[in-house]
Design a protein around this nucleic acid. Sequence first.
DNA 1: GATGAATGAGTTTTCATTCAT
DNA 2: AATGAATGAAAACTCATTCAT
Lengths: 198, 198, 198, 198
Amino acid sequence: MAKQKYIDKSKRELILLVSSKVFAKQGFHDSKISQIAKLAGIGTGTVYLYFETKENILKELMVQIWTAVANEIEFVAKDMNISSVDKVYECARRIILLASHRKETAKMVLQEFAYWNDPDFAPLTRTIQKTKDLLRFIIENGIENNEINNRINPEYAVPFLIGGVWHLIEYVVQTPKYNLENVIEQAKIIVTNAFQIH
Amino acid sequence: MAKQKYIDKSKRELILLVSSKVFAKQGFHDSKISQIAKLAGIGTGTVYLYFETKENILKELMVQIWTAVANEIEFVAKDMNISSVDKVYECARRIILLASHRKETAKMVLQEFAYWNDPDFAPLTRTIQKTKDLLRFIIENGIENNEINNRINPEYAVPFLIGGVWHLIEYVVQTPKYNLENVIEQAKIIVTNAFQIH
Amino acid sequence: MAKQKYIDKSKRELILLVSSKVFAKQGFHDSKISQIAKLAGIGTGTVYLYFETKENILKELMVQIWTAVANEIEFVAKDMNISSVDKVYECARRIILLASHRKETAKMVLQEFAYWNDPDFAPLTRTIQKTKDLLRFIIENGIENNEINNRINPEYAVPFLIGGVWHLIEYVVQTPKYNLENVIEQAKIIVTNAFQIH
Amino acid sequence: MAKQKYIDKSKRELILLVSSKVFAKQGFHDSKISQIAKLAGIGTGTVYLYFETKENILKELMVQIWTAVANEIEFVAKDMNISSVDKVYECARRIILLASHRKETAKMVLQEFAYWNDPDFAPLTRTIQKTKDLLRFIIENGIENNEINNRINPEYAVPFLIGGVWHLIEYVVQTPKYNLENVIEQAKIIVTNAFQIH
DNA sequence: GATGAATGAGTTTTCATTCAT
DNA sequence: AATGAATGAAAACTCATTCAT
């Protein structure tokens, strides 16, 4: 029965998992806590043992995925020994992979992100800022090392890069049949061309 | 008095204008019709003389701005006599300008778009598809004419391009002090590098 | 055009006529003044030149038809020189005829009557009471004159009679194909059997 | 306290009971759910745990009482070993008794019935049709067995009978001091005279 | 007199959250 | 800890009525 389905996960994780699916499918405002509880095989009230509010579930999911993104980028920035341009591409590749592995959460984030990008919610703002700072760090470093085109302005290049990857993911998430390798290959071409010195 | 404030605009336009501001500031779900009416200096019921539902106000705003975008791109694609790469850049430039002139609406669209991108709402879907088709047309043409790098895959390049510009706009919209010329200049550099043949 | 259709009627009568149709079709609560005005080919506000409220239109229609009923019964009671049993039957016959000639109003009255049978609305209460008193008068007279079964108790016989005729009308009003002569003939049989001395 | 008042009834029954009173007193359209809830000593939202809409409460009450009527008549028609004329009278008697025991619901049904006699609401239409069919069956049988006057036409006699009884009930319901025995006795006299062979 | 755009009071219904069990 | 019945605040929307033209 439903209650057994996720027995190996903690109840908290279970709620997050189910919520990401429901939010992705219906959007935050049309998702009902009672429905999430039913799908999770638990009581409505039980949800409130693990989360203070419905909003908090969403916020935690956002932080979760952005933290994963930040971690990937941090690893690329600090621990990989490749050219700066390759680092930029590697970041793009890892974000695309991450999203393709967690399509529901990715879809949800894409849907709800702008709405919930609340400057007062520090944990999220901080993580996103970290992501941007790391990307900026990579690019600035590349420019210093003559690996990245010095006409690139990191302040604007970072949002362009994030937005480009973001929508590539949106496309991937919405398209049932897509070729992940091609998507990544294309990201490589665009990023490389855009950033390298010709 | 408030009632006179916008007397030169038709009431319908007034409602759209006020709604775009309120939606941008608070998001659709947290915007109340009564509040919009009050800000517009009209009665709550009056809003319903001009729009069937609150959703319809949002939808009309979305269609309005996407139509403007589509028109700009159509003009570039069909009537401008410049190279394909320049066309791509010119599209980006015009979208950025459009958004910078209608910051509130742009912010609102960015915020609500993913949520309301409802395939059943034909007028919007059609306009967006038109935008994408025109961009794709420009790129495919450029490849055929050896003006655009033939490793570019229009299927994925279009969402990347849209996403990049989109988030550049988001950045612009969120940043009180930004240099519009720099933003556009940067878009030119990235787009040109990414698409041209080196 | 619609405005010409009823040009021979005074506007007040026109509103009453159209209202009776709309009320009959949709019920009072689902009838909109704006709809009545449109069907009457006049402006919404114009209705309020002739009637204070929507309720008043209904009340006037009720009074109108009940007055017609009362008048018929008064004529039978006072001016016809037939047996008491025949008088009772004649009352039934005339009410049935009246309803069959004004089906819409009859339908409306049947639908709204119980709801609006407001003891505080004197003009209606008075007319209905008059109808009942006249019927009672006929029956009591008949008993005194040994024309009507003395086991009949006018207090209860009158509502039974009214109710019987009423629902016969309801049946007539709801049945597209009915035989008016048969309906009246049947009323005669039932009434005669019920009231005469055997 | 109010909450305890009806503790022995299930909450669903409680809502029906209170609703029948409020509907009877004010009519359906002037009855507010919040008022029903308050009188029932429960929260407004609680009503919606038991009924989908306000209309559904009314419809259920209607079905409830008409089912009771149909059951009484069915018993008379099928299980009682009396003459056909007595059966007709017995039906009348039982309906009058039923209404006198549930005056509020009866009053409400009388008030709202015509308005809600919606052919699309099958459960109600079906039950009413059953009632009519059973009465017709009794009368047709009586005619065949030479117990009921063969000039009686069941098609029209049934609505007359129902209407007569109906308004007798209305009279009973509206009159604080009435003599139930006299009412029933009078129904017997009228029905017997009207239907028997003289 | 005639109009119909404007009004805003008013009610059903929803659902996040609570809390007695 | 777990539950789910109960809550009640909140908002979209309607429409009788008004009144400036």
